[in-house]
């Protein structure tokens, strides 16, 4: 697991909050969209926060999943033109996908939450399976790492 002292997770995914909130600082955009998370990341990167994870998901296309989690630094450090380019290109890429008439069931939403969470966990070297077991078994606080 990467040391989390300088991490801020921007997310609209409730599963990320449930599995990771004990270890990381999380900005939970509860009613926010995928695009809202991208915009928040862009604004913070423009303000000098370091971008730690790529803003676009793996192979899940924008507008095909409602969830996104992005990691930036908790505090602003120095403006990076390269990172600003990555985050603004990502927003451009997002916007070219047309809105579709999604009517996801709870089960499918849960799948999308899982994919977003596992991608994030992979990036953070966070034990995704352990996080899920905590979610499933509700391990009491005494088991905190």
């Amino acid at each position: 697991m990467r040391r989390g002292t300088d991490y801020r997770i921007l997310t609209n995914n409730p599963l990320v909050v449930r599995c990771m909130e004990e270890w990381y600082s999380i900005d939970y955009l509860e009613a926010g969209s995928y695009r809202d998370v991208l915009v928040r990341a862009r604004d913070l990167v423009y303000a000098g926060h370091t971008l730690f994870t790529h803003p676009l998901a793996g192979s899940v296309k924008p507008n095909e999943t409602p969830y996104r989690s992005i990691v930036v630094s908790r505090e602003p450090h120095a403006f990076s033109a390269e990172q600003a380019e990555i985050v603004s290109n990502s927003l451009t890429a997002f916007d070219k996908f047309s809105e579709k008439d999604w009517q996801w069931s709870e089960k499918v939403l849960a799948d999308f939450q899982l994919i977003d969470y596992t991608l994030l966990a992979g990036a953070m070297e966070f034990d995704a399976a352990a996080g899920l077991d905590k979610e499933r078994n509700r391990i009491p606080d005494t088991n905190k790492k």
Binding site: G58, S59, I115, T118, L119, A121, G122, A128, A129
Partner: peptide, 18 residues
């Protein structure tokens, strides 16, 4: 090689490419 995390992995001689 695709290597972005659980359910997004590729294995080389059994090693997770990421």
């Amino acid at each position: 090689l695709q290597s972005q995390g659980l359910l997004h992995d590729t294995y080389v001689y059994g090693v997770d490419a990421k």
